[in-house]
Design a binder for these strands. Structure first.
Lengths: 108, 108
DNA sequence: GCAGTTACTACGACAGATGAAGTAATTTTG
DNA sequence: CAAAATTACTTCATCTGTCGTAGTAACTGC
């Protein structure tokens, strides 16, 4: 189990990563993070939805509704070109972070 | 350059890691993080000192003074057994985090 | 028809990082 | 030798992101 404290810097990046595969919505993203991480990380609902708000405010994602005549209305999200650029940056930063943090890690 | 947002989950771990090499104090730790990371991460002073306070409160480090008859008085820190245990946990968590985050990272 | 799942939204609390500013002593440099 | 830089912190107020709690709403399976 991964605590939110250590992974929090990557919540936005994870969401964007999944949106690169196509538009999606909160509940689905949440499930996919859960299964992709093999239950090792479960993003809290409130964290996820507040991330959406932030990402949209920053222009990294767009939200829209699909015409669904049934079920509770979902808010769908789509990554923007700006979001892709941001994602790319974060991927590079991840490589750096791995290098740096690894210097402070030793298996005792 | 690594932003504090992405590495913040590892500030405490980095500090503890350096204290495993022996007792030290703020300014030195700060310098060592800077050089070890090859200037890729510079921990802000306030972040560092507030981390010391937190770590001590949690029983992960002890603080003390050396008898120095010169200079501004330094607060030295030493890792406790509890701190070592916590460090070990965080190292394991790092391995997990690497595995998980990597699934959301692709070089485009 | 009620429990469970899907799909959110609102709100308030809290922790950690930060900027700005200040203190104080020593060392370097012009 | 005085001014600037470096060492070594401390205080405080602010901001951002996460989280717990709670509530709304519709559909699905038994």
């Amino acid at each position: 189990m991964i605590s939110s404290d250590v992974i929090r810097g990557y919540n936005d990046t994870m969401i964007l990563s999944l949106l690169l595969d196509g538009e999606s919505y909160g509940y689905e993203i949440s499930k996919r993070i859960r299964t992709l991480s093999e239950e090792k990380y479960i993003m809290k609902e409130t964290t996820l939805y507040s991330a959406f708000t932030r990402l949209e405010k920053n222009g990294f994602i767009d939200s829209f509704f699909m015409d669904e005549t049934f079920g509770k209305r979902r808010t769908y999200y789509r990554i923007t070109p700006l979001g892709r650029a941001y994602y790319r940056e974060k991927c590079e930063e991840w490589t750096l972070t791995q290098e740096v943090v690894s210097k402070f890690i030793r298996e005792l």
